[in-house]
Structure formats: C-alpha cells, structure tokens
C-alpha cells in the first residue's frame, strides 16, 4: 500500500532534504506516514509527482 507515494517521499527527501519533504507534505496535504498507508491510485500519484517536480525543479520520473 502506498509504495509509490512513499518512494516519492524518499526521493524528495534525498534530493531536497526535510525542506523539500515538508513542502511536499504541505502541497499534497498528506504526510509520509499517511501516504505509505494509502492506495497508490494514478490520480494521487500524479498529484504527488507534480508537486515533487515543482519542489525539486526536475522530473522525478528519472529517479523512480
């Protein structure tokens, strides 16, 4: 459950530190603990990727 969302959180934290991670939590409204328990629906994944791209300034798909 939520493996993709959790992976996005991990990449964002690795690339941008906690700054970026907190930003992701704020933008999506979903903290990492909750994300790991959620279902990886295409809609939510897309929302997370869009937010991650904006935060990191790069395409997160290259790290997935």
């Amino acid at each position: 459950m939520g493996a993709t969302l959790e992976k996005i959180y991990t990449i964002v934290t690795e690339k941008g530190g906690y700054d970026a991670r907190m930003n992701l939590a704020q933008k999506t409204g979903i903290p990492r603990t909750k994300a790991s328990e959620m279902e990886d629906t295409p809609e939510v994944i897309n929302r997370f990727k869009t937010a991650a791209d904006e935060i990191l300034g790069m395409d997160i798909d290259q790290f997935m």
Binding site: R21, M22, G29, P31, T33, K34
Partner: peptide
Amino acid sequence: AIDTFEEAIAG
C-alpha cells in the same frame, strides 16, 4: 519526531 511534525504541517 519528523513524521509527527509532518502530520502537523500537512494540515
């Protein structure tokens, strides 16, 4: 602790 903080900031 960060996980808990993040829950707060995610609102």
